[in-house]
Amino acid sequence: MTTTLREIDLNLLVVLRDLMQTRSISATAVRLGMSQPAASNALARLRTTYANELFVRAGNTMQPTALAMQLAAPVEEAMVLLQSTFAQREQFDPAHDTRLFNLAMTDVGEVYFMPRLIAHCARHAPFVRLKVIQTSGPTLRQDMQDGRVDLALGPFEDMPGSAYQQRLFDQSCVCLFRSDHPFASHPPTTVAEYRHARHLFVANAASPYVEIQQRMEKAGIHASRGDQVSSFLSAPFVVATSDCVVTLPFKLVEQFARPLGLVWIHPPLRLPTLSTHCFWHRRVHQDAAHAWLRAQIMALFGETRD
C-alpha cells in the first residue's frame, strides 16, 4: 500500500538526513536539540514507514542499509528545496526583484501617492512594478484576504481584524476656489457667509468623505441645491472656470491649487479630520518584499503628530 505525504511526519526526514551525516543516535539528538529517546523513537517510526531497518549498529556507529543509501540523495534534495522556500520568503533584493504590487486606493490617493512612489521605486527598485486597484468596502476586505490586493492606502474604514495598519497622516478639508473669486479678497468668517456661496459637491462620495457632506448638510449647505460632479479629480477644474467653491481634502488641493491658479482657505465650519493609513493583511505581514514597500511608503508619506 502506497504511503501518502499526509501520513508522514516530515520532521522524520530531518532525522534521517542527520543520521546519514552523523551515523549516531546521540549525535543526531544533540544536533537537532532533542533527547536521545526522542531520536530513537523517530528512527523507529522511520523504520515502520519504510518497512526497513535503515540503520544497523556496527560497533559504535549506525550504518545505513542499501535502502537508506538510496534515500539519502532525494531526501537531501527535498530538504534543500524546502529550505529555499523560506529563503525566498525572507530575502528581497530591491535592485533586482521583479515583484508586482497591487495597491488599493481612491482616485484622490492615486493622485497623491503614485507620482512620488513610482519615481522612488524607479530609483531604488527599478524592476518592481506597481498597479493601482480602485476598490473599497467589503470588496476591498475580500481582495486583501484573497491576495488580490497587497496594500491599501487611504482613509478606509471597517477593515477586518486580520488587517494590520499604520497611520500615515491626518488631513483637514479646505475650501478651494479660483483666484479672483470674492472669497479671495473677503474670506467668509461665518457659516452663513460660507453657505451663501455656490457650492460644488462630489456625488456618491465614499466614507469617510460622506461625513464631510453630512456635516455641511447640518450647516444648511445642501448637495441637492448645488452642482455635482462624479469625481474628486474633476472638481478643481470646475471651480477654476466657475463661481463654484468646493470643499476637498487638503492633500488633493495641494496637487491642483498652484497649477490651476486656485486659492484655498479653511472654511468657517468645523469638519472632521481624515486619517489616512496603510493597511495590509496578516498573511503578508512577515514577507520581506512587503515590509520593504511599507517602509518606503512610511518614509515618503508618514507624518508625525505635533
Results as ranks from 00 to 15, higher is better:
Ala240Glu: 00
His96Ala: 10
Ala38Val: 12
Ala295Gln: 07
Met105Trp: 09
Arg198Ala: 09
Ser231His: 15
Gln166Ser: 12
Phe101Gly: 05
Asp243Cys: 06
Ala39Pro: 07
Ser231Arg: 15
Arg305Ile: 14
Pro115Gly: 03
Leu200Trp: 00
Trp292Pro: 01
His199Glu: 01
Arg225Pro: 11
Ser136Met: 03
Leu5Ile: 09
Arg148Gln: 11
Ala78Thr: 10
Leu16Gln: 02
Ser275Arg: 07
Asp107Ile: 05
Val30Asp: 15
Leu46Asn: 14
Val132Cys: 15
Lys218Val: 08
Ala38Phe: 14
Arg6Phe: 14
Leu153Cys: 09
Thr48Phe: 03
Arg283Lys: 07
Thr190Phe: 00
Leu100Pro: 13
Phe92Pro: 03
Leu260Phe: 06
Phe256Arg: 05
Val284Ala: 03
Phe101Thr: 03
Gln21Lys: 14
Arg99Ala: 08
Pro37Ser: 08
His290Cys: 08
Pro74Met: 10
Arg282Glu: 13
Val75Phe: 05
Phe177Met: 04
Ile118Phe: 09
Ile8Tyr: 06
Pro208Glu: 08
Arg198Pro: 02
Arg294Leu: 05
Arg195Asn: 03
Arg225Met: 14
Ser84Pro: 07
Gly220Gln: 01
Asp227Cys: 12
Ser162Lys: 10
Pro268Ile: 00
His277Thr: 11
Val263Tyr: 09
Thr106Ala: 06
Phe183Lys: 00
Ala87Asp: 15
His199Asn: 02
Val263Asn: 10
Ala240Met: 00
Arg167Cys: 05
Tyr194Thr: 04
Thr189Trp: 06
Val210Gly: 07
Gln70Asp: 06
Leu103Lys: 13
Cys173Thr: 10
Gln134Ala: 11
Pro64Lys: 02
Asp18Gly: 11
Thr304Cys: 15
Ala299Arg: 05
Leu13Ser: 03
Leu176Gly: 04
Thr241Ala: 10
Cys121Asp: 07
Asp143Phe: 14
Ile221Leu: 13
Ala44Trp: 09
Val132Asp: 11
Cys244Arg: 02
Phe201His: 01
Leu117Gly: 02
Ser185Thr: 13
Phe101His: 05
His186Asn: 07
Thr304Gly: 13
Thr61Gly: 10
Asn11Glu: 09
Asp243Leu: 06
Asp158Leu: 13
Arg6Ser: 14
Thr135Pro: 01
Gln21Asp: 15
Gln228Ala: 11
Pro160Leu: 03
Trp264Glu: 14
Gln142Gly: 05
Glu53Arg: 12
Val30Ala: 15
Ser35Trp: 08
Leu16Asn: 04
Gln91Ile: 10
Gln134Asn: 14
Pro249Ser: 05
His186Trp: 10
Val253Asp: 07
Thr48Pro: 02
Thr98Ser: 11
Phe183Pro: 00
Val108Cys: 10
Pro208Arg: 06
Met144Thr: 04
Phe279Ser: 04
Arg116Gly: 07
His281Tyr: 09
Ser242Met: 00
Ala38Ser: 15
Ala289His: 02
Ala122Arg: 07
Val149Ile: 07
Arg123Asn: 13
Pro155Phe: 08
Gly302Leu: 04
Met114Ala: 02
Leu103Arg: 14
Phe183Leu: 01
Ser162Tyr: 09
Trp264Val: 08
Leu168Asn: 00
Glu193Lys: 04
Arg215Ala: 08
Gln228Lys: 07
Lys218Ile: 10
His222Gly: 08
Ser40Lys: 12
Met105Arg: 08
Gly220Met: 02
Asp146Phe: 14
Gln145Pro: 08
Ala39Gln: 03
Ala39Tyr: 01
Val253Ile: 08
Phe92Trp: 02
Val128Cys: 09
Arg167Lys: 13
Gln255Gly: 06
Tyr112Thr: 02
